[in-house]
Design a protein around this nucleic acid. Structure first.
Lengths: 183, 183
DNA sequence: GTCTATAATTTGATAGAC
DNA sequence: GTCTATCAAATTATAGAC
């Protein structure tokens, strides 16, 4: 199963850089050093490939997140782990979140890919809502959406301007929201 | 100059729905009721078309924004106009911001399009920074980035889940950031 | 200005040899 | 499992008639 992983690595990088529509089997194959027919052997269709990449991405992000907050009861520090996850995602390659890219394209996306993206965001929101549950469901939902939106939007702004400062500022604002502070 | 505008309308809708890579001259032409060669007559290349659409979009958004805040001295109400602009952008068509879509794709975008997108975001940030200038440049920059990121990210979340509630929550968080309130 | 026709390239996907 | 070869479709863009 090593080739499958290498193909998914290349596909994930392409997806985060240029999106679903502009990612081609030939480019992914070339990145890995094989021919496009070999990629089709492992992933029959483009939808299969993208779906697998999103599911692995979500599993990996939440494995890192859960490892970072294992045994951590402080809501503020748990929320900070989510912020750090997004800061790290940009630092490694200056790319936006895979699911932010696919979410932007979602109208033209195959159904299973769309759903995998939706599952990831729902899990992010659920994680954050649990951080804020002491506030009651309504306020927790607002804080969770505000924090996640600020992080995803911060990645977008940083990518557009090719300036990490935008992300750092958005992340600072997200943390202020998370702990109920003012800027 | 009416056909030019109709082509740009169709191109803008396609860009916001499926992005630059997946927008084709044939689809845009079909939307307008002409052939793709006619689109090429008005806009020689895809880059020309997208650049014109982004510039018109930016001009239109800021015309609406400036009209909404004309003679309005209150920073909070000026910031709210920016929030309302984004709420309205989603309400009309359930689509994300044109520049958020293109920003996600920015790695694979022609240079002039990339720059037009960057100009739009810079103008948005400048508008917000001026709202918050009483706080000093550093805090104003954080608030501005936080508000814009929350709005753009909120659009993204709402589009992914096809649920406007995510945007409304993110917008509420953005307003809290803007006025220095807590949620 | 808009059309038909077409060039040149790229794409997702398949068949079949090895 | 990977390859070569290929298909059918779609793409951006241009030439030239009307």
């Amino acid at each position: 199963m090593e080739m499958r992983e290498r193909i998914m690595d290349a596909a994930e990088a392409r997806l985060r850089a240029v999106g679903y529509a502009a990612m081609s089997f030939r480019d992914v194959a070339a990145d890995v050093g094989v021919k496009s027919a070999s990629v089709h052997y492992h992933f029959p269709t483009k939808e299969d490939l993208a779906e697998s990449v999103v599911e692995r991405y979500a599993a990996r992000q939440f494995a890192a997140l859960n490892a970072a907050v294992a045994g951590e009861p402080s809501p503020a520090r748990r929320a900070r782990a989510m912020v750090d996850l997004h800061l790290g995602a940009f630092a490694a390659g200056r790319r936006i979140c895979l699911c932010a890219m696919l979410s932007a394209e979602s109208v033209g996306l195959p159904e299973r890919v769309k759903q995998a993206v939706s599952v990831f965001f729902d899990a992010c929101l659920l994680f954050l809502q649990e951080c804020f549950e002491a506030l009651g469901p309504e306020r927790a939902a607002i804080r969770a959406a505000g924090v996640l939106a600020a992080l995803q939007g911060g990645l977008l702004l940083a990518a557009a301007a090719r300036d990490e400062a935008h992300l750092e500022r958005a992340a600072a604002a997200a943390m202020a929201l998370a702990v109920g502070a003012t800027i």
